[in-house]
Computed example of a mutant assay.
Amino acid sequence: MPRGDEARVQAAFEQWLANSGWTLRFKAERGDVDVDAVHADGRRLLAEVKGRTSAPGLDVDTAYGQLLRRMTGEMNTAYAVVVPESCVAAALRVPQAVRDLLDITVYAVNEQGDVRFVA
């Protein structure tokens, strides 16, 4: 279970997904992706979540690395990095063209728990 601010960010994102027609899948073991969700139309979303820390750039870089390691190659699977608003700039350091090639989107969660699609 994520600790501290990461738990807050993850809970808000999971609630937003559930409200948007996604079903969260059970995580079988440690080391799995933070969020694994399936939409009714068959799309799958794997997401890594980070909270506020003293090293947001490093933590966001870690999130990208974790996603790369967990990529399935399945055509209907997309990926996301989910961060607090204060870490959006760090998440956008990976160029848009690279994120597009890898089908990675960025979501931000504000202090009130609102989620927004960033890129």
Rank of each mutant, 00 (worst) to 15 (best):
L58I: 10
K27H: 08
G42I: 12
A7L: 14
A91R: 00
K50P: 00
V60T: 10
T53H: 07
E74D: 07
T53S: 15
L92Q: 14
Q15G: 13
L67M: 03
Q112Y: 04
D114E: 14
M75K: 14
A108G: 07
H39G: 04
P84S: 14
V88P: 00
R70G: 06
A37V: 09
Q10C: 14
A28K: 10
A40D: 08
R116H: 04
A78T: 14
A28T: 07
V118S: 12
A37Q: 04
V106I: 15
L58W: 09
N110C: 12
P95E: 14
L92D: 05
L68I: 04
T23S: 15
R43M: 15
T105A: 15
A28I: 07
T105V: 12
R44L: 10
P56W: 06
N19F: 04
P56S: 13
D32V: 06
T72H: 10
G31M: 08
L92P: 00
R30M: 05
E14W: 00
R69Q: 14
N76T: 10
A80S: 05
V83W: 02
D100R: 09
V115K: 11
A12M: 08
C87G: 12
W16I: 05
A7T: 08
A89H: 09
K27E: 11
V9Q: 02
G57S: 11
V35T: 01
A55G: 02
T62M: 05
V109T: 08
T105K: 14
E14D: 02
A47C: 10
A11S: 07
R93N: 09
R116Q: 13
V60G: 05
A7V: 03
P95N: 11
E85L: 08
D5P: 04
V49N: 08
V115Y: 06
S86V: 05
F117M: 07
A108D: 01
Y79N: 02
M1K: 03
D59F: 10
G65Q: 14
M71V: 04
V38G: 02
L67I: 11
A78D: 12
M1G: 10
R43C: 12
G65M: 13
E29V: 13
V109P: 02
D59P: 00
E14I: 01
Y64E: 03
R70I: 09
